[in-house]
Write a protein that binds this DNA or RNA. Structure first.
Length: 891
RNA sequence: GGGCGGAUAGCUCAGUUGGCAGAGCAUCGGCCUUACAAGCCGGGGGUCGCAGGUUCGAGCCCUGUUCCGCCCA
């Protein structure tokens, strides 16, 4: 678009496709590390939180991408060398499940294919569908560097993963051991603590008699899982629980099994819960496991990895499913008279975050990272080297790191980074190294690699440096590590952020990012989590189709700092589409009035409107910059919204029409220049939030030297245009126009009717006379007035609508046009407002101690305010009295 | 059970060193005023969850309390 016109309506789809392609084809967002290494530019980098390769763009992604894009585009405007790395996560369990479902349709299982073929199959799937989410990122307008795209399972990242694993193993920070883990019977794998979700469930609490072996009585034990009693190794009571002190050290007979187990004392037991007697099943309960360790108790698993009772259970129960076994155990206990009762009991149950199956604590051999040393460094780095925004999350971060347990990193699935450890089948030697060994270095025997793969988060934890080429010492790594900020939701603060901190510090000796910005979760308008099953999902792509990317981005930005959750509804997006339209139309207006005006440097500002809008523009530049640097995204959006709509469109453009449509060529030229300057600089300020509409308008502006707005620098400051005087003068002008309009509307004057206006400029504003004198034509057009009489001390006719603006009385003569009882009532209402303010102010000023204790400037300001209101009240009362008596005389 | 956050207009929420409670949407009234009816002009609407405290002054700071949400156990 070269000529200075714009089509009547903004067509987002066309513009987005065109510019998206332009930016990608021109590699606009692919920086050269050399410009950083040479010292020419400062680096600014962000690594994208890699979405699951199986994923589809949802509102959380849309928010996350929008905020990062605002930062990246803004930093480019600041002259930084900006690298935003895109990519996807291989998402072990999720992706494997997708392909397994595919196989199921063909009537096959993964075992039918075997490991190699299955993995091949997953790669095929990835090739076919893995780009979906990436293309959706494109549609958000994200200014990522596509030449830097990575996948957590690609070759380079695999190298990084092996390097890290081998080094940690060498340092004794990775070990293999028996441990109780969260086990999903369905996914057939161990899960990390934070992959387990806790959901409230209705359950039962069973009370069961355990007889003391010496026949001196019985203990009644409360449990929610009676089937696990087959694996009990002790009963525990609180050491200070007087009901049971007699039993401590004795033995009880384990029902249905018949063996004797000890009664132990431990302060962990909650005296209030159930009966105060806790049965200890170390193999099937996390807490019992811990208790068994401190008391040196045996661990007897009775449930196997499929959820069935194993050979340690009495013969009657072997092979039964755990649920069936529970029924049988209860039945048998009842038959033996050992069951006291069953009560309803609500408790929280762990579920697999992938398939929602109930988690079964399970003892097995797994690989672990010893995290305590890593966690210590990660904790200490905050906030000195890495600052978390908002800072309240620091506490949560510390809380987690202080209570961290070793990280179970092995998963019994196939899709993922296979653990680089081999066991010699001959001598049992364990080999851990980056390169695949051929045979045992000790005895030459055949080797077998570990079957397990690594937790997906293990590779994600390396993302900030693995994507930059580590373990190679690449220019990219040197230039862009550490990254500037990590932008993410709080839900993965632990899964991911804390682990990146640990790995980054350990392997790069530097934190992976200077800042962490934690943003809200996007919920539906009722505040519920969006989910497909609830059917309350608002699809970002659908919204983009209906309202355009810019509308969606602006909406998310405007709500970005509003607390922890964003309640989103389609109506809001639709509302901000109106804003996009408003911007478009204001640009159309400006271009219609440019007539190819040459772009020349702005030297001075003439006229109230120009002086004022340039002053405001300077303020907005400051606001947008500081808000962006401080991650106050909603302030960026709101500041620009107000400026563009309520100031630029509603006032400036309307006032500019005076010059633009007038005959004073010099004024016309000056105003064109200001109009073009404000419009074009506003497009730059808004570009990070709304890249497309601003770019499209930018291209149409006359005199543009750089047509690609994405590479245009942030506007220079013009401090000479900052003018508090202009702001004050404008406020008075707006007051006069606003008061006049209000009189018209509230007295129901025909809008077409032109009225005269009389202003007594002898008020509190020393510039009143000049402001009115110099802007008479504007007042006439904005307030629909046909004549203005202004002079200090002038009285208008009593038969007027009246108002007080900064102590100036304004009169709209309405003789014969209205019923003046309406005006009297209107003045009553206004006086009522003044009285309210007066009462509050007087109360404050007369309060004992105010004059003495409050700062002098506050006292002076309050007194001035009081004088102003009292003056206005006196004047208004007088006007009302005058009108009243005149009306009485007439009658 | 431990921790964190929220409660402000009908709705969704701003409110950055304590100094006259704001916005958007919704609502009511009036306008096709030559960029925009996806618009313009004007109006109404709040005991800032509750109870105390600090202060000349509290939506904001402190204590307690109720309700809601989230995380961890």
């Amino acid at each position: 678009m070269s000529d200075a016109t714009l089509p009547k309506g903004y067509e987002p789809a066309d513009v987005e496709a065109r510019w998206g392609k332009h930016w990608e084809d021109n590699k606009t967002f692919s920086p050269d590390p050399a410009e950083v290494l040479s010292g020419e530019k400062q680096p600014y980098s962000i690594v994208i939180p890699p979405p699951n390769v199986t994923g589809a763009l949802h509102m959380g992604h849309a928010l996350n991408l929008t905020l990062q894009d605002i930062l990246c585009r803004f930093m480019r405007q600041q002259g930084k060398s900006v690298l935003w790395v895109p990519g996807t996560d291989h998402a072990g369990i999720a992706t494997q499940n997708v392909v397994e479902r595919q196989l199921k349709k063909e009537g096959k299982k993964r075992d039918d294919l075997g490991r190699e073929a299955f993995i091949e199959r997953v790669w095929d799937w990835k090739k076919e569908y893995g780009d979906r989410i990436l293309n959706q990122i494109r549609r958000m307008g994200a200014s990522v560097d596509w030449t830097s795209e990575r996948f957590t399972l690609d070759e380079g990242l695999s190298k990084a993963v092996r390097e890290v694993f081998v080094r940690l193993y060498g340092e004794g920070l990775i070990y293999k051991g028996n441990y109780i883990v969260n086990w999903c019977n369905r996914c057939h794998t161990a899960l990390a603590d934070d992959e387990v979700e806790h959901a409230p469930k209705k359950g039962k609490l069973y009370r069961i008699r355990y007889a003391l072996a010496d026949g001196s009585g019985e203990l009644i034990v409360a449990t929610t899982r009676p089937e696990t009693l087959l694996g009990d190794v002790a009963v525990a009571v609180h050491p200070e629980d007087e009901r049971y002190t007699f039993a401590i050290g004795k033995k009880v007979i384990l029902p249905l099994v018949g063996k004797e187990i000890p009664v132990i004392a431990d302060a962990y037991v909650d005296k209030e819960f159930g009966t105060g007697c806790l049965k200890i099943t170390p193999a099937h309960d996390m807490n019992d496991w811990a208790l068994a360790r401190t008391h040196g108790l045996e661990v007897i698993p009775v449930i196997d990895d499929k959820g069935d009772m194993n050979e340690n259970a009495p013969e009657a129960y072997r092979g039964m499913g755990k649920n069936a076994c529970r029924d049988k155990v209860v039945e048998d206990l009842e038959a033996l008279g050992l069951l006291v009762d069953i009560a309803d009991h609500d408790h929280s149950v762990g579920e697999c975050y992938r398939c929602k199956s109930v988690i079964e604590p399970h003892v097995s051999e797994q690989w672990f990272v010893k995290v305590a040393p890593l966690a210590k460094a990660a904790r200490e780095a905050v906030p000195a080297q890495t600052k978390i925004f908002p800072a309240q999350w620091e506490k949560t971060y510390y809380e987690w790191l202080d209570n961290i347990r070793d990280w179970c990193i092995s998963r019994q699935i196939w899709w993922g980074h296979r653990i680089p450890a081999w066991t010699c089948e001959a001598c049992g030697e364990l080999i851990v190294q980056t390169e695949d060994p051929t045979n045992c270095p000790k005895c030459g025997g055949a080797l077998k690699q570990e079957d397990d793969v690594l937790d997906t988060w293990f590779s994600s934890a390396l993302w900030p440096f693995s994507t930059l080429g580590w373990p190679e010492k690449t220019d990219k790594l040197k230039a862009y590590y550490p990254t500037g900020v990590l932008v993410t939701g709080f839900d993965i603060l632990f899964f991911w952020v804390a682990r990146m901190m640990m790995m980054g510090i350990h392997f790069q000796e530097q934190v992976p990012f200077h800042h962490v910005y934690i943003h809200a979760l996007v919920r539906d308008e009722q505040g519920k989590k969006m989910s497909k099953s609830t059917g309350n999902v608002i699809d970002p792509l659908e919204m983009i189709g209906k309202y355009g990317t810019d509308s969606l981005r602006f909406t998310l930005t405007a709500f970005a700092a509003m607390g922890r959750d964003i309640k989103l509804s389609e109506k809001r997006i639709e509302g901000y589409r109106h804003f996009v339209n408003k911007i478009w139309n204001s640009a159309r207006f400006a271009l219609m009035n440019m007539e190819g005006a040459p772009r020349a440097e702005l030297k001075d500002a003439q006229g109230l409107a120009n002086r004022w809008i340039l002053h405001r523009l300077e303020e907005v530049k400051d606001e947008v910059e500081s808000a962006t640097l401080e991650y106050r995204f909603n302030d960026i959006a709101q500041g620009l919204y107000r400026f563009i709509w309520n100031e630029f469109c509603d006032w400036y453009v309307e006032m500019a029409k005076g010059d633009l449509y007038g005959t004073d060529e010099a004024a016309k030229e000056a105003t064109r220049k200001v109009l073009l300057t404000v419009l074009s600089e506003t497009m730059v300020l808004l570009h990070p939030v709304m890249p497309f509409v601003t770019q499209e308008i930018w291209t149409a502006l006359p005199g543009i030297t750089n047509p690609d707005l994405a590479t245009v620098r942030y506007p220079e400051r013009r401090p000479q245009f900052k003018s508090e005087q202009a702001a004050r003068d404008m406020a008075f002008f707006q007051g006069v126009v606003g008061a006049t309009r209000a009189i018209r509307t509230e007295l129901c004057i025909d809008p077409a009717k032109k009225l005269p206006l009389i202003i007594d400029t002898a008020g509190d504003n020393p510039n009143a006379f000049d402001i009115i004198h110099n802007n008479m034509a504007l007042i006439m057009s904005l307030a629909r007035i046909d004549s203005v009489i202004y002079a200090p001390g002038n009285d208008g006719p009593y038969a007027s609508g009246t108002a007080i603006v900064e102590g100036c009385r304004i009169f709209v003569p309405l003789e014969g046009l209205v019923d003046f009882s309406t005006e009297l009532a209107r003045l009553d209402k206004e006086l009522g407002k003044l009285d309210k303010q007066l009462a509050a102010l007087k109360g404050k000023l007369s309060a004992p101690g105010f004059a003495n204790n409050a700062p002098a400037d506050i006292v002076a300001a309050e007194n001035e305010k009081l004088a102003g209101i009292e003056d206005a009240k006196a004047k208004m009362t007088e006007l009302q009295e005058r009108l009243k008596s005149a009306l009485a005389e007439e009658a």
